[in-house]
Design a binder for these strands. Structure first.
Lengths: 141, 141
DNA sequence: CTTTTGATTTAGAATTACTCTAAATCCACG
DNA sequence: CGTGGATTTAGAGTAATTCTAAATCAAAAG
C-alpha cells in the first residue's frame, strides 16, 4: 500500500550514527549499557543524542546486528554477540559471563512440549558466585 | 553485638499491610505487577500507600513468601509460587506460564562447571507463541 | 538545480517503575 | 504516660527509556 514504491524504499538505513553505535558495541568485550554506549558514541560523534542511541540500538537489534540482554536488575546491556548463548551472573559483583550450553536445543524442545508453545528462543541464566568473589567471600557461617 | 537485645527484636514483622499484600498475591493465579498489587491492596486496605506495597514486597520476598520475576521488558511481577520453577512467555500476547523442567538440576551443575561459578540458582525462560495466539496468528508469509 | 517526500536526528519533555525522605503512627516495654 | 525502634504514609526524587515536534538530510521528481 505505498504510493509509488520508490527504488530506495529503505525504511532502515545504516546512518553514520548507527554505524558509530555499532562500532562502540563491537569494540568492547564488555556488555555495555545504553548509557555507556551513549558516552562512548559521543566521543566518536559529539553531536549524537541520547534518543538516537536508543533508536540506533532498536534498529541494530531488529537488523540482528546486536543483541539486547536484560536481567531485570537495571539497565539493558548490549552485546555484539548475536548468536544464541547463555549467561552466568555473579550474585556478588554482578559480573556477566557468556556461556554456551549444548543442551539448549533439547531443552527448548522439551520446554515447548510441556507448555504447548511454538518455541522461538530460550533464555538461560545461571546465578552464582564467580571465582574472584568466591576467593574473597570465603567467609564461613 | 546489640545494645540490649530486647525480647521482641522483631526487625521483620507481619503487619496488616504486609498481610494484605500477601493476600492479594496469594489470591491471584496471575503474576501481578506491583502496580496491580497496589490497586488490589487498596480495595482491601484503602489507606495503604504505594511505597508500603514495595516495602512489603521486599519484605515478603526476603522472608521467602513470594517470588519476584522480571524479564527485563518492564515491571517486575510477583508470584505466590516460591519454589524454583521455569517460565514460558508468549511473544505475541506476553502471557506468562509456569513450567517445570526436571533437567534443571543437571543443567545448573553443567553451567556452573563451565564457567566455574558456585551455582546458586538458574533462570530459564522459553520464548514462544502460546496455543491461543498460534490460533489467531496462523498467518503465513 | 529546486522541490518534494519520507526517514532520521536532535533536545528536551514525558513516562514508567521504583526508591528515598521526613514526618506521623504504632506498639511493646519501663 | 514516655521512650525507642519499626513501620507507614505522601510525595519528592531517580534511573531508564520513550515520545514529541521541529530541524535536517538524502534520494527522486520535476
Amino acid at each position: 500500500m505505498r504510493t509509488h514504491a520508490h527504488d530506495h524504499d529503505a525504511v532502515e538505513a545504516m546512518t553514520p550514527q548507527r554505524r558509530v553505535v555499532l562500532e562502540v558495541i563491537r569494540s568492547s568485550d564488555a556488555h555495555l549499557t545504553a548509557n555507556e554506549i551513549f558516552a562512548n558514541a559521543r566521543e566518536l560523534l559529539p553531536t549524537i543524542s541520547y534518543a538516537t542511541v536508543y533508536n540506533s540500538l532498536r534498529h541494530l537489534k531488529k537488523a540482528g546486528m546486536v543483541a539486547e540482554i536484560n536481567f531485570g536488575n537495571g539497565a539493558s546491556r548490549y552485546d555484539r554477540e548475536t548468536s544464541r548463548h547463555d549467561h552466568a551472573m555473579c550474585s556478588v559483583c554482578a559480573k556477566l559471563v557468556d556461556l554456551d550450553l549444548p543442551a539448549t536445543v533439547d531443552l527448548t524442545r522439551e520446554a515447548a512440549r510441556r507448555c504447548d508453545f511454538k518455541p522461538e528462543s530460550i533464555h538461560l541464566t545461571l546465578i552464582g558466585i564467580c571465582p574472584e568473589c568466591r576467593g574473597t567471600e570465603r567467609a564461613p557461617a
